[in-house]
Write a protein that binds this DNA or RNA. Sequence first.
DNA 1: AAATCGGGGCT
DNA 2: AGCCCAGATTT
Length: 233
Amino acid sequence: MPRARFSKSSELTRSEKLRISHLRSRLLNWFVENGRDLPWRSPGASDYEKICVEVLLQRTRAETVAGMYRNFFAQFPSWNAIALAPVGELEGVLKPIGLWKRRARSIRALASYAAEHDGQFPSEPSELAQVPAVGQYVANAILLFQHGQPRPLVDINMARVIERYLRPRKLADIRHDPWLQEAAHWLVRCDEPVQVNWATLDFAALSCRTRNPLCQDCCLKKKCNFACNLHLE
DNA sequence: AAATCGGGGCT
DNA sequence: AGCCCAGATTT
């Protein structure tokens, strides 16, 4: 008997994989009608803008960032512009959206790295982990947007959608839960991973909200574990 | 694992 | 008034 048959090659059951594929299909369909129109998603947005905006989005509403997006990138049109600008100038633009001291450090660290590497970040996760201000989420964003890899933007929102639809994760920390990580990867493993990521984040923000989720009108309520449990009360 | 950064919006 | 928001870093 092959030993591989008993070893856990995948965290996901076949049933879970099928359900995730269904989830992906519904999210993409939902996205066509309900997706948000955000400035960093426009075709003209550069890799610089897409990566830099991820720092602006940390613990900050997308709408808040959208409001200062044009102003920010007009003042800092490139990694070099940030690297050459006085720190106080960068901090000043960041103050209205909060976390300005941390964000200024992070963005300047990224700009310094980019300035020395012609705007190119590593395409290997192990190397990305060594870049300052790059955690798991930003690493995935870089792999997704700059290198075209099908990586999931696993934040609390994507986690909530997957966990409600399938089941809660085991570990407290999203980044260290193997099952959740693999589920998220499986979700975006398709021909249009960017669309799936945006669809999931928008769906989480507009429909599958933390408080008062719109389960009544949800296109997933028939198969969603969370929604199904609601009707039992 | 828990605290911290932080201003603004929503309840 | 209190809670939450496209996380990463430090303790």
